[in-house]
Every structure is written in C-alpha cells, then in structure tokens.
C-alpha cells in the first residue's frame, strides 16, 4: 500500500501559493471541501484562479475566499447566489469565466484522462463559442473545448482509506470524482479516514492512484442552501 495520509489540513495544503489555479469540488454547498477552504482563508493565499461549479454563498464555501479578496478569477457555470461575488464582478475586481456545466465537468474529466481537447455541441451558436474551432459531425455543429490545467485539485469524499481510495455519498459526489487527478496534485478531504483494507474494493468510486494527499476533516458543517420539506400527511 502506498500511503497517502497526511495528518492535518495544513500538511495537505502545502505548496499552494499565490497565483495558482485550483479546482474545487462541490455543487452549491453540497460536497465542498470545507476544511480546505477554511484553511486557505487562514493561509491568506492570494490571486487564485478557482475552477468550481459555483462560488458559494456570501458567508460559506468559496464566498469566504471572495470576502478576503483571495480570488482573482472564477471559472464556473452558475454564480447566482452570492451578492459579494456580483459586486466584485460588476466592479471589475474579479475576472469571471462562465462556461456550460457539462463542458466544465468534461474539461475536468479530460484533464484527468489525458485528453487534450474534445468537441461538444453545448454552446454552439452562443457567445460561449466565440473564438473556438467549430466542426460538424453527423450533421450537427460542435465546438472544441480544452482540458483544464490546474496546479491543485481539492475534493471532498465521504469515506477514504490511507491508500487514497474514495467513496462519495449522495449528490455530494457531483464534480469531485471528475477533478481527482485533473490537477497536478490532488488533495482529498474525507469525513472518515480508514486504514487500507477497510473499504470493499468493489465499492470504491475513485482509486487512490489519482490522489496524492488524504486527510480527515475536523469539522463538517454541511450547510444546506435551500432547505425544502413537505408536511407529514
């Protein structure tokens, strides 16, 4: 077993420096690496380019990094829940690249899988396609999109083992598996870190080969963005 375990979030985030590009998993506030984000706020790393589907809310998730003006550029598909984000974007302090969600996911997966570029129909004929190569396949128009290049991927999983194997829970899976191995170094924070051999190999979603550092997060607040319920009959 090749041991990927590190003892603290501080050890896990070693080497993340100003001006780097970081991918972070999560959809809304679901499945975000919240311990790593909190530590990035403490470290005060600046001028980051962040690739993440959303930008958190004002006081949680990536919103915390935005508050401290640590993010130079955001690459996301949807950023609608964050007033500070909107303010920084409209004032020009924050550079924003909005891209279709499936393209965002596939650009992560392409980086993970060693595919430099691919064609997708998403965004053809829209402003997303401006400046991109267009090709017709089977009578349908597609645009070329490139794999992301990132210095670090930071993902969150439910369970992991010391070999770096990961299992996700529910819809907290989302972008996390696609980002594993997509950055030069992948950091996984997990709710429960187990000795190698504790997880059933049949049930592992992402094998440890894609993970360089794994640690157990201290606190998971797991904030709910839209609490919707129904009444009992």
């Amino acid at each position: 077993m090749i041991n990927k375990k590190v003892n603290s979030v501080q050890d896990a985030l070693q080497g993340i420096e100003d001006n780097m590009t970081i991918m972070l998993g999560g959809f809304g506030l679901c499945g975000i690496p919240e311990n790593s984000i909190a530590e990035l706020v403490k470290k005060g790393t600046k001028n980051l380019t962040c690739i993440s589907n959303n930008a958190g809310v004002d006081d949680f998730g990536l919103g915390l990094l935005l508050q401290q003006k640590q993010i130079k550029k955001m690459i996301s598909s949807y950023v609608g829940e964050n007033a500070e984000f909107e303010r920084q974007m409209l004032s020009g302090e924050l550079d924003v690249e909005l891209i279709p969600q499936g393209t965002l996911a596939e650009r992560c997966r392409a980086a993970q899988a060693g595919i430099p570029a691919f064609f997708t129909p998403a965004g053809y004929g829209t402003e997303v396609a401006i400046g991109k190569e267009v090709r017709e396949f089977d009578g349908k128009m597609h645009i070329m999109e490139h794999a992301f290049k990132a210095d670090f991927s930071i993902v969150k999983a439910w369970k992991g083992d010391e070999a770096g194997n990961l299992i996700f829970k529910g819809t907290a899976r989302n972008f996390n598996p696609c980002m594993c191995g997509a950055g030069k170094i992948t950091i996984a924070e997990v709710e429960e870190l187990l000795p190698a051999g504790s997880l059933n190999p049949n049930e592992i979603h992402i094998p440890g080969i894609l993970i360089q550092r794994i640690f157990q997060g201290e606190i998971f607040e797991k904030r709910i963005e839209q609490r919707t319920t129904r009444k009992r009959a």
């Binding site: 959809f27 679901c30 899976r173 609490r227 009992r232």
Partner: peptide, 30 residues
C-alpha cells in the same frame, strides 16, 4: 423530505433538499 429528514448530501440542481425513490442512482457530473 419530511421536516427533520433533510440530508445536506441529497439535493437537486436547484440546491433544494430532496429524497430518492426506489431504483434511484447517483453519479458524477461528467
């Protein structure tokens, strides 16, 4: 979900808490 049974790890694309039905499955974004 019923009140009190919300799961932060189980939401829809509108970020609302939801439930699963028999036969449900989860998968990644790609």
């Amino acid at each position: 979900p019923f009140e009190g049974e919300e799961d932060a790890d189980l939401i829809n694309a509108g970020k609302q808490t939801i439930t699963t039905l028999p036969g449900a499955s989860f998968f990644d974004s790609a």
